[in-house]
């Protein structure tokens, strides 16, 4: 049996602020992996740059800590190299929706079998409080004392419009619910996108635990996540009411199934079997 101790990282000095929303996210992820009975060596995380991208260092898993915004290309490559790995990407809103926006759109289109967690605190923390792509319109920051003058992007609506195969939102203040959503995401075959509303206790004085707690509500059993138009409509809710849960599910083939060699085994297996002589005949085409 896998235990939570198996996921205990050798890194003890955690660089997050006291009370950071990343702590419950880390805890929920560990619990989800334990409950899914996955061994640490079976899991590979890819992260970017920012406070949330340090998360894989704080649990014991395989890890490729990428550059800012490049989580998804590397995670896609990794998932194709060894599709038996449980691949989980994690990064912030600036990393995923700003720097990595084009990769995010195209990862959704490709549908690699992986989970992508965006810890969305609607602000840039590590660079000290600038606006992120999800900072609400009008919010005053240190650098924009007159308020942010462009509207926030809507990650749920974008993902649904692209027929992302799994779209969910959680709140870092609800650990159990987060854990359950993460388990569903990890079990999902295809690109599972989870946006987690995560308070930044240092730089975002508007979107606090309290602020979210007053607004989030769980989607009920009567909600049908396979209805695209209903999901799109649900995705527009932001303000007094913010839905959390699985907003959208769309059945589609996963990336690996498009590749003939990957039907025979993992690419890593194929690599191990490689013999130069297997290609001898192809030189004939050049005579």
């Amino acid at each position: 049996m896998v235990t939570i101790e198996d996921y205990e990282s050798r890194v003890k000095d955690i660089a997050w602020c006291p009370g950071c929303g990343n702590f419950p996210i880390l805890e929920a992820l560990k619990q989800a992996l334990v409950e899914l009975n996955l061994e640490p060596w079976q899991v590979a995380m890819v992260s970017g740059i920012g406070q949330s991208s340090k998360l894989p260092h704080y649990l014991r898993v395989n890890e490729y800590n990428e550059l800012h915004g490049r989580i998804l290309p590397a995670a896609t490559g990794l998932s194709l190299a060894n599709h038996e790995l449980v691949v989980i990407g994690v990064g912030g809103d600036g990393d995923g929706y700003g720097e990595g926006g084009n990769h995010w759109i195209n990862a959704i289109r490709r549908n690699p079998n992986m989970t992508y967690i965006v810890t969305n605190n609607q602000i840039y923390g590590l660079t000290k409080g600038q606006a992120s792509p999800t900072t609400d319109y009008g919010m005053k920051t240190k650098d924009e004392p007159g308020g942010i003058h462009i509207p926030a992007m809507n990650p749920m609506a974008v993902a649904i419009s692209l027929d992302c195969s799994f779209v969910a939102r959680c709140f870092a203040g609800d650990l159990d619910f987060m854990k359950e959503i993460l388990k569903k995401a990890i079990n999902h075959k295809g690109f599972a996108f989870v946006d987690i509303l995560q308070p930044c206790v240092t730089w975002n004085k508007v979107n606090t635990y309290q602020w979210y707690r007053e607004r989030v509500y769980k989607l009920g059993d009567d909600y049908d996540p396979t209805d695209k138009f209903a999901a799109f409509q649900k995705a527009q809710e932001w303000g007094a009411q913010i839905p959390i849960g699985v907003l959208y599910l769309f059945k589609r083939p996963i990336l690996k199934d498009d590749y003939v060699p990957l039907q025979r085994g993992t690419l890593l297996d194929l690599q191990k079997e490689h013999k130069p002589s297997q290609f001898k005949d192809l030189l004939k085409k050049f005579f």
Binding site: A81, P261, L262, Q271, Q278
Partner: peptide
């Protein structure tokens, strides 16, 4: 050798190199 390796046409060259790095980390 279409069936003997995996090719991905990426959205840009940032993705190209990082995807190759992810695959290389994976052992291929």
């Amino acid at each position: 050798a279409h069936d003997d390796f995996v090719f991905v046409q990426t959205e840009d060259e940032l993705a190209s190199i990082n995807m190759a790095l992810g695959a290389a980390y994976g052992g291929v």
